[in-house]
Write a protein that binds this DNA or RNA. Structure first.
Lengths: 138, 138
DNA sequence: TATTGTTATACTCTATAACTATA
DNA sequence: TATAGTTATAGAGTATAACAATA
């Protein structure tokens, strides 16, 4: 039979990674999307919610529920932009940054373990190629 | 900021691959899951539907709709196992094999194009590592 | 009684379209 | 009127549990 396809291999690996991330996020009381939002905000504040939705790939209406929960728990702040009060500037709070840091560390450790058995050269090439390929979907 | 995470990169790439596969499958009138089922059956007939569900990662009840459609279009056959008539042996028909072959060729071409820009050594390492990693999720 | 396949029900997630407040 | 955010509605996808046939 033929070599397995990229989509097949990726979905398999994706399932594995998500399964290993889930207990980490559960422990922090975060959903997968909450985590994606916090990660995006760690890079820089979002000038509008619509922009945050676009940058995370989340639907703008569904993003609201995540922000509501994260704001209620003090992890993000939403403030009206003084220049145009229709916009809400979304930012990470120190609490959010701390929670994010904890998850990120645990996830990095999980990834290191997942990749540990690979030949070091293969591993570097894998990360390089994956980064380059992921760039395409912009 | 930190290096992007595996999950982030994988989901990005996954989205790109799926976007590129969609028009190919649309042209054949197949859903993503139909294609996964045909692919699994190409390797070998499924002795039971439950087993086919397990091997494709699909829910056993939702598999039924896919099989209904594929059977109606003559792409798969369901016959009761003479040894235990509760079981349905699912097999690929010649029509199904032909449709599958067409999609597979188109998808392989799409993948080749997607990977074309990579350094050849990186590409080989990427495929090797991805295959090894996907193996873990069994 | 236990198991395979099927159907039915409820639940979650997603997408679309109204609504409000600002401009 | 146009846009950002919100809410409400409808649709697709998923999971769970009941059902029929066979063992």
């Amino acid at each position: 039979m033929d070599r397995p396809e990229l989509g097949f291999l990726l979905s398999r690996l994706m399932r594995e990674v998500m399964a290993r991330e889930k207990p980490i996020l559960d422990a922090a009381g975060l959903e997968m999307w909450d985590y994606a939002v916090l990660t995006a905000l760690a890079e820089s504040d979002a000038p509008t919610q619509a922009q945050l939705a676009a940058s995370t790939g989340r639907d703008k209406t569904r993003l609201i529920g995540n922000l509501d929960r994260l704001e209620a728990r003090g992890m993000v702040a939403r403030e009206p932009d003084p220049a145009d009060r229709r916009n809400r500037i979304v930012s990470l709070t120190s609490v959010g940054a701390k929670v994010l840091r904890g998850c990120r560390d645990a996830i990095e450790a999980m990834e290191a373990e997942l990749l540990a058995d690979l030949d070091p050269a293969d591993r570097a090439a894998f990360e390089r190629a994956l980064t380059a390929l992921a760039e395409r979907s912009r």
